[in-house]
Design a protein around this nucleic acid. Structure first.
Length: 275
DNA sequence: CATATGTCCTGAGAGC
DNA sequence: TGCTCTCAGGACATAT
């Protein structure tokens, strides 16, 4: 499940397209139900073909390919993958972009929940950021992080997944950061002290930055890959995610529990995360 | 406004 | 072995 570290890794993987000309944006033939692409690919191609890529940026969990005037927003969601090399299989390539210099970018997505959206860059803020995305998890100040979490009555784990509150953290890293900060995922965000939220903020930065260094987490389904089609390695650092029933590596006495919050799995150690 | 729930999709794995 | 069923969850639309 691509979250901030995985999407950041995808962005870095396609940096070589910066400075290249877009030759063609196309949609390979695919036997699966098409993903949502707006406007239709032919129209996107008409706007972007011949234009030079000036930047690759990340907005929360989205990859953005920018030319002078245009932004193409790729949203991998659950199983999407953006890369220059061969995807895990050729059957689920949803969008293809050919560049000068023989570079070919492919947006691969097995489940097809991902989306592609084109818009003039000048509309990007109003249509994507405003009202939808909070500050990026790598850029938010501790003060803002604390203030936003203290303003919600939801359980801390659920609040961390709210992209409007904080952009970039998803289900896996939310569980991991709460474990490292020793915070009960069920605790109401507003009831956690500012001092503990400050610790959580630092833990979040540490975890996300290490995960980026290790090129993200590749889970048991093997879907996520880095730019050269190798798995990431942060999954080796997981302490609780998908470890229900295993002994907690910290206290060595309690078993990791799985609970469901807001229809999502949460993993935690009931002994180490009691406050 | 804040929060909660339903929906989309495919493939892996469980159970019989 | 081969079938059916359940589940995974990001983000948006809709409901409370």
């Amino acid at each position: 499940m691509p979250e901030l570290p995985e999407v950041e890794t995808m962005c870095r993987g396609i940096y070589p397209t910066v400075g290249k000309l877009i030759r063609e944006v196309s949609q390979p033939r695919c036997d699966y139900r098409p993903i949502q692409i707006r406007p239709p690919v032919a129209e996107i191609n008409a706007h972007m073909a011949g234009c030079k890529v000036i930047a690759i940026t990340r907005l929360g969990k989205r990859v953005i390919i920018q030319t002078n005037d245009d932004s193409l927003i790729l949203q991998p969601k659950m199983t999407g993958l953006v890369a220059l090399e061969s995807p895990p299989d050729p059957d689920h390539v949803r969008l293809q972009i050919d560049f000068s210099g023989n570079l070919r970018l492919q947006f691969w997505d097995r489940r097809g929940l991902g989306t592609v959206e084109w818009m003039p860059t000048k509309e990007l803020h109003d249509r994507i950021v405003e009202g939808r995305l909070g500050p990026d998890a790598l850029r938010i100040t501790p003060e803002d992080f604390i203030a936003r979490l203290q303003a919600t009555t939801r359980p801390i784990k659920v609040a961390l997944l709210d992209q409007k509150l904080l952009a970039g953290v998803g289900n896996l890293y939310a569980s991991e950061m709460l474990f490292k900060a020793k915070i009960d995922p069920k605790k109401q965000a507003a009831k956690i002290s500012p001092a503990r939220l400050r610790v959580l903020h630092q833990v979040m930065l540490d975890i996300l930055q290490l995960a980026i260094t290790l090129e993200g987490s590749t889970l048991s389904d093997g879907t996520y890959r880095n730019a050269i089609n190798d798995p990431g390695s942060y999954q080796n650092m997981h302490r609780v995610y998908d470890k229900a029933g295993e002994a907690c590596g910290q206290c060595n006495t309690s078993a990791i529990l799985r609970i469901v919050q807001a229809q999502r799995s949460t993993f935690y150690c009931p002994k180490c995360q009691r406050s």
